[in-house]
Amino acid sequence: MSDSALIVILGTAGMLLMAVSIVIFVFLYQRKVTRKELELRKTQQMLNDLEIAATYSFLEGQQKEQQRIATDLHDSIGSQLGIIGLQLRGLSTADKEPLMRIEAMVNDALKDLRNISHRLHRGLFRGASLDQAIKQVLETITASTELVIHYQSHGLEQNDSEDLGRELFRIIQELLSNTIKHAEASEVNIDINYFKDEYCNLMFTDDGKGFDTSQKQHGLGLSSIQDRVDSLNGKLYVSSASAKGTETVIEIKL
């Protein structure tokens, strides 16, 4: 091989080697960046889950505390007021009018106390407090994720059933969790309609990637929702298609 040929071969090989090194560098660097982004996303997801779980715990703790205060009010101050009322009735004085006035005041106080106690004991999942609890959870999720949630409810304040309220709350919680974890959705719509002694329905839609509903394996999330709906003698309808989002409808006869 002549020296001229050797220089061309070596020189070109050197240039190509460096060009290939640059391509390999870009490939390795991009792989590293992608890996870091995945780790970051996982950490963010974990933080979001923790924040949402903390909100649920807070709501449950709040409910327990309310029930404890209600029990204390009823058992302690309520019974003391009752005893005072009884003793007032047993007093014998010439002028009965002031005593009657005091007795009426004690009875009013006892009545107010019972009302407060009952309201507190109604719990988190009855009446207007269910609506507030749902809104509180949605606020937490909106603040910690990029999900836009539209929520509407009608007649929920008429709900007297603690069981229905609790199950509805858990179902919404589960549906939201599924959407955040799997759907890659940007928008969610939640509609609840409650008609006393008639029916209650919940419609939950997202604009995520959807899934194939003909597949039997939906994971624990959906089967847990099905169990909750069954416990309320309700019906669950799920419709979804790839890239067309998911619509979940729950109908419960009251």
């Binding site: 020296d3 050797l6 220089i7 020189g11 060009a19």
Partner: peptide
């Protein structure tokens, strides 16, 4: 990237220039 490719081509050119001046008839 530009420097690396340029320098890798120049390296052999410079190295062989030395060879050319002293040991090569052509």
């Amino acid at each position: 990237s530009a420097f690396l490719i340029y320098l890798s081509s120049s390296f052999f050119a410079y190295l062989f220039s030395y060879e050319a001046l002293f040991n090569t008839p052509d």
